[in-house]
């Protein structure tokens, strides 16, 4: 017996049916078709699957999909506005903050959660914001620098 759920994904209403116990990660990828979310562990330990639910970072692999009904979910597929990249995306490119790219969607969402709440983070704030996201390639420094760059460029744009 599947349960119908409807929620906002990157600003658009989507609806699907989920099995009992289905997690949000598999629902997004396999039912809804948003392949921009990646899965690394299905244990809630690596942070790769990080999405935003109502603006706060959540691990989609250990989130019961049906709890999202009526809520707002954001994934990396919704970051850019048409042809324009989000400042975080541009900053990651400039700073070579990705190599294999697999942790990148989760990192971007964790960073977005930070900047949406705190547009002027310290380095320590950034480290805390991504401390739940494992990267096996970059050594994290390029990512931290990219997030700080994005914050600075964003504030310059708004000034």
């Amino acid at each position: 017996m599947k349960t119908p759920i409807q929620f906002r994904l990157n600003g658009e209403e989507v609806a699907t049916f989920v099995e009992g116990g289905a997690n949000l990660l598999d629902t997004l990828r396999e039912s809804v078709g948003d392949l921009s979310v990646k899965g690394g562990c299905w244990q809630g330990t690596c942070g790769t699957c990080t999405v935003l639910i109502d603006g706060v970072p959540r691990l989609s692999c250990v989130t019961l999909a049906e709890t999202c009904a009526g809520h707002s979910v954001e994934t990396v597929a919704g970051l850019r506005r048409g042809a324009d990249l989000h400042p975080l995306q541009s900053a990651f490119m400039e700073r070579f903050a990705a190599q294999c790219g697999y942790c990148t969607p989760g990192m971007l969402m964790a960073a977005k959660a930070l900047l949406d709440k705190n547009p002027n983070p310290t380095r320590e704030n950034v480290v805390d914001a991504i401390c739940g996201n494992i990267c096996r390639c970059t050594g994290y420094e390029p990512i931290i620098n990219a997030v700080l760059d994005a914050a600075r460029s964003d504030s310059r744009r708004r000034a």
């Binding site: 116990g21 809630g44 250990v62 019961l64």
Partner: peptide, 18 residues
Amino acid sequence: GTLVMRAVNEADPSIETI
């Protein structure tokens, strides 16, 4: 869900009802 959903993902047979 950090504990229960992990167990569900791993098909823990002891969980039938959430």
